[in-house]
Structure formats: structure tokens, C-alpha cells
Write a protein that binds this DNA or RNA. Structure first.
Lengths: 183, 183
DNA sequence: AAATATAACTACCTATTAGTAGGTAGGCAA
DNA sequence: TTGCCTACCTACTAATAGGTAGTTATATTT
């Protein structure tokens, strides 16, 4: 992995474990055993790094959408839910949740990139649920977009709330989300 | 309102609009037209202020639980949901959501107080849903506690996600939460 | 071999942060 | 009226932050 990619990966982990305003270039440089100025060589400003982290997440999402495009709605949904299960296993929260709470403190470029990312997630899940409803493997009353909002909010906040109540609550919520598509 | 209460109120708003790590004692002192040192007179450390803000929220919750204790489950739930609607109208996120993402950066005393607060919210909503299911005004398959987790995660993340997708999505989610108790 | 690009370095700067020391003006109580 | 309390003040410190200028070592290309 290139230095640039390592920085993005570490920055990503720091944002999702501590939040955008609680990590510094020094945190990254320390872990890589290079100097803070060397991180600035790759990413002149913290905003630049933030944008690149978001772009990496978007790229990963696009790859996942692509690689699951021939599968059925149930498989696609499982792929989506697996994202959160993986984040939970690392003890982090998701990027959207972390940055959404910091929205008023970040550069407009980051805010806009984040909005695009959130829209892409919402559109994908909406499509999955729409497909599943049409083919009969999912059943729900409201619109696919509304159901997608419900699923995403459940998963996003499950990561956050289960840090406080009980780690197991994450899986309780995840299972109930799945059940809620077969009512 | 006393100086102390004003500081708590401003700190609370700052946490919920910018996050714990993005506000300073100067932000508060500036708005009150006093000096940063004067804020330290009331709250020696930022942790002290954080604890007091959490205690104020817990106190407010206890008052609400108390004042709605004689009402029915539907009224109680509406009181609960109104908390989030009010926060949304201010453009903020909720304290639990904001601090949950910062959990790894705050003093253990704050983390513990936050966990207590989250437990109290969860217990109250669980009780409301249990009452409602017993009396027949609410209908759902899973346990009251699990349903409470679903409702809370929907509302908590609705505040965060609707900052990114569409402000109206908050109300879409809120209405769907209500519908989801009458299935 | 010389020129260039890459990726790191040392050594700074400026701003902000949390927090402290010590002082003061005014109210209240013995 | 003496003395304490409250609530603020000025003035500071030590640490950390993001960021910059200029330098050097190592490859790669011409």
C-alpha cells in the first residue's frame, strides 16, 4: 500500500473512531513513523485529506454496487448490512454518522462531498428495496425510499447507540431490520 | 437565568451543533461578553462542563417522565418524539448522537454519564411501548426493548441523515416511526 | 553522468486551546 | 468596620494545532 493510501486509511479510521475534529496530522505521522510535514506533502490541508477519504469511500461503494449488480435483492441487502457489521467489529461508527455531527465545522467542499455520498447510499438502498418489493422477496407498506431511510437510520445509529447501551444491541437492531422487510 | 445556567445552555447548543471537540470556552465567553477565565470559575475543566450539561439533560428527561406519568402511551410517545422535532427545528443533532461519535475522546466520567443517560432514555421508551402494547394502542412483533431501540435509532439518525439528504426526510422518518407502531 | 521527480526531512510560524495565578469591585454578615 | 464571598477581571503558561519554507536522500529517466 502506498504512503498516500496508508494516510487515507489511517485518517479514515481516526475520523470514525474519534471524529474529524479530534484527530491531527501528528496522529497519522506518529503511527507511520514519519514527520507531520511529510503528511502535508501528500495532503496540503486537512480538507484535502477529508475529501480524499470521502472519495475513497465513494469508490469502495461504487465497486460494491458494481460487483453485486448481478445478484438478487437479498444478497445486495446483505452486502449493504455487512458494511455496518464490519465497522461494528472494529468498534467504530460510520463515516456519514461521524461527519454529519461535525457538519457545521468542516469546509463546504467536505460537506458537499458528504452529501453526495449520503445520496448515493440512499439511492442504492432504495433501488435494492424497490427490486425486492417488485420481485416479492421484501414486503413493506411505505415507499422504497422511505423504507431505505428507515433501514439506514437504524444501522447508522445502531453503531452509535450500541456503544452506550450494549454492544449486542447492534446485532439485535440488525436482525430486526431484516425482519422488518418480511412483514 | 444564572450565569452558570447560561453557560450550560450555550455549551449544550455548541455540543449539539458543532460537537464536543469543536467548541471552546472562548466560544461561550465571547457570546456572554465575559472572559474565558470567568467560565473556568464556574466550570474548572471542560469535563466538568460536559458532566453538568449531561446532568441538565437527565434532569429535563426526569421532569418529562414525571410530568407525563399520568398520561397514556400515545401521549407519552408524542412527548418523546417532540424532543427530536424541537432539536430538528433548531438545526442541531441530539446530545447522545453527538457525544456517541466523540466517545473515544472524552473523559471516562462523561462517557459513564452518557451511558446512564442513554439507558434512561431506552428504559423510558421501552416502558412506553410496553404499556402501549399491553393496552392495545401499539402493535408490534418484537420485544418492547427491541422496538424502543428501533424507534430511538430512527429518530437519532434522522437528525443526522436529514442534514445531508433532505431536511424533509426527518419528518418522513418521524411519521413512519409512528406508523410502525400500528402495524 | 546529469537532470528530474518523489518522498521524506529539519526547523520554523501563527493561532488556538485548556487551564492557572493573582487581583479587584461590590454585596452581605458578624 | 472588618472580613469573607461571589463573580468577574488581567495576564499569563504550556501544549497542540494546521501549515510553510527550504533542504536532503533516493530513485528514475534522459
Amino acid at each position: 500500500m502506498s504512503t498516500r493510501e496508508t494516510i487515507i486509511q489511517l485518517g479514515d479510521q481516526l475520523i470514525r473512531s474519534k471524529g474529524f475534529n479530534a484527530f491531527s496530522f501528528y496522529d497519522i505521522s506518529e503511527k507511520m513513523k514519519i514527520k507531520n510535514a511529510s503528511v502535508h506533502y501528500h495532503f496540503p490541508t486537512k480538507t484535502d485529506l477529508g475529501i480524499s477519504i470521502l472519495e475513497a469511500h465513494r469508490q469502495k461503494l461504487h465497486s460494491l454496487i458494481e460487483s453485486t449488480s448481478t445478484k438478487g435483492p437479498v444478497d445486495k441487502l446483505n452486502s449493504f448490512l455487512l458494511i455496518y457489521t464490519t465497522i461494528k467489529s472494529e468498534g467504530h461508527v460510520c463515516l456519514v454518522g461521524s461527519l454529519a455531527t461535525d457538519l457545521n465545522t468542516v469546509d463546504l467542499k467536505i460537506a458537499n462531498e458528504l452529501k453526495t455520498f449520503a445520496d448515493e447510499i440512499l439511492n442504492w438502498v432504495t433501488t435494492i428495496l424497490d427490486e425486492g418489493k417488485t420481485s416479492g422477496v421484501f414486503s413493506f407498506q411505505c415507499s422504497p425510499r422511505t423504507k431505505a431511510l428507515m433501514v439506514i437510520t437504524n444501522m447508522l445509529a445502531a453503531l452509535q447507540l450500541s456503544r452506550l447501551t450494549n454492544e449486542e444491541d447492534f446485532y439485535t437492531i440488525r436482525n430486526e431490520v431484516i425482519k422488518g422487510l418480511k412483514d
